[in-house]
Design a protein around this nucleic acid. Structure first.
Lengths: 127, 127
DNA sequence: ATAGAGCTTCCAGCAACTGGAAGGTCAAGC
DNA sequence: GCTTGACCTTCCAGTTGCTGGAAGCTCTAT
């Protein structure tokens, strides 16, 4: 299977698939003409990467998860640890964004938003 | 005032202050020895940048906000528009992260996290 | 005179792609 | 056999917002 079909199948852009090869996540075989040829196994990995990236795991986390995916003797504790750490980070980001949201929405509400220069938003930013 | 004092005053690293100059956000005068010399006006701008970046505005948004800050004839509507757009983006990100959080926390809860290979997280990622 | 702190510029790198240029390959139609 | 257009390849640069480090000049205190 060539790269555009692999792209359709995995939902990843061809550019991204080549990038994943560059950084050693997958290694499809090459045909005589130099074209990449994706096996079923490669396609499984691409789909796995698409989903784990979609859940916000870093590419380096994905590399580890992929190796655990392929390791029939893995301990589920190892997977869970990565996921928990990621979850904590997501929760931290949510809290951070919610704090910004609170501040900003107060400022937006306080601003008349008319033709006049008076602006509580600017005043707040000016300190 | 030299750059390390400006850094202390604004809460921005000296590297960042130089970077802001590189991209044209501030233009401190130079002393005879080539050192940057920050005026009160420069310091106001740096504090403004520190706060607006702290609220998550992009550097390009900050550039526009800074020009509005300096424009005595600004319309508060222009400021409010930028802030509202940013707020919507923040709310979008929060929703996206909350969706990831829900999915991930379910998966983490479902995983035993022991020495055995069975893992609902991996199974989900595998599709 | 010298040591150490502080300043300068410039170049490289981070994450995770994405866009584009230059050029080889393949399948279809004439 | 030739052309056209859609593929494919590699490589380089750019994105965002800094950050680290090297090489070298300047200033202050001893």
């Amino acid at each position: 299977m060539n790269i555009s079909d692999a792209s359709r199948d995995s939902g990843l852009p061809a550019k991204t698939i080549r990038y994943y090869e560059d950084i050693g996540l997958i290694k499809p075989r090459r045909l005589g003409n130099g074209y990449r040829d994706y096996s079923d196994d490669d396609l499984h990995k691409l789909r796995f990467l698409q989903r784990s990236r979609g859940l916000g795991f870093s590419v380096e986390d994905c590399r580890v998860l992929l190796s655990l995916y392929e390791d029939r003797n893995r301990a589920s504790a190892d997977v869970k640890q990565i996921a928990k750490t990621h979850l904590v980070e997501i929760e931290r980001k949510i809290a951070e964004l919610q704090s910004l949201q609170r501040t900003l929405s107060h400022l937006v509400d306080a601003c008349q938003g008319d033709h006049r220069p008076h602006c509580p938003i600017i005043n707040d930013l000016a300190g």
